[in-house]
Design a binder for these strands. Sequence first.
DNA 1: AATCCGGGGTC
DNA 2: GACCCAGGATT
Length: 355
Amino acid sequence: MTSKDKFFSNKLLEWYEKNQRELPWRKNIRHKDYPYRVLVSEFMLQQTTVATVIPYFKKFINEWPTLKKLSHAKIEDVLLFWQGLGYYSRAKNLLKTVKIIDEDYNGKIPKDKINLIKLPGIGEYASAAISSIAFNKKAVAIDGNVKRVIARYYEIRGNDKSFEKKISEIAERICPNSKNRSYTQAVMELGAIICKPKNSDCHNCCLKSKCSAHKKNTVDRIPTIKSKPLKQKLNCISFLTIHNNSKILLKKRIGKKILTNQWEIPSTNWKVKPVKFSKKSTPVPNAKWKKTNVEFKHSFSHIDLKNTVYKSNINNSQIQLNEDDLKWVDLKKLNKYAVTTMSKKTLNLLNLIQI
DNA sequence: AATCCGGGGTC
DNA sequence: GACCCAGGATT
């Protein structure tokens, strides 16, 4: 432990005391349900910005204020709630984890990383984050923010395995033996609001006097950017069937790997080549179908999808539905279903709903 | 070790 | 359009 290491944790803790944001999951650390709220927040925050999470978190805690209540929830309800937040396996894993804690741990969240990491959806980062933030235990949580802050402060270059190893070794070495609840959040907080990926606010940084990258003016080049594989470009046509301008046909994505079990406007498979319209592929082949002017792109983490929308007005809703996973849904009751964001965008563009 | 999994904000 | 976000599971 060098004086530069000491400076890091001391200055950071001092800065955090005065500058931390008021975030809903940080309130009432003495409350019996505080660890549960930290648990929920850590699931939501994975690869998701604080600003996005806040409204979801508030509604979630309002709906399921305690671990016990969430443990009795149905996965359909949790998924409905998670709609639009993305990475839906988090919702399933959160419910699984809470059920395990309720049954195997007498409702008490494990305090140590070694037990937390066994739970579904909790990995290397989250186990350390929960242990330190919820229980004030010493545990080293390394997320994207931490990597960036440490890489700049010690001027660690690269983006490969050895980079990860160096960051990890330094993080272990400089982690203080107390105030870990604050320290874990302080490093991430600095990364989020001062030591940002771009336009980092070095002028207001409590670490600038000893920051190697700042002194050498290499902040913008650290950490080294990883080249990512190109996104696959895919196409689809979706078929909006509408009755009396009030009810639409939705289909459940059964057996799909992405957006599993969510409801959507029936669509062709996603294909590399532009999809040609054919009546046979529509949910109601004997109806009149018309191409709309709605055509837009929707991006996933690894796919850029172009969606072209066709529409059919159906006068009687008595038509035979051949498949069990097709259903007429009143536009006013759309919020009872987990509907894909792309389908909601479609309905919004057709002025059928407001998002 | 690479790939999959969402969606939105920022520049 | 490229990059990032309090990552984890799967293959």
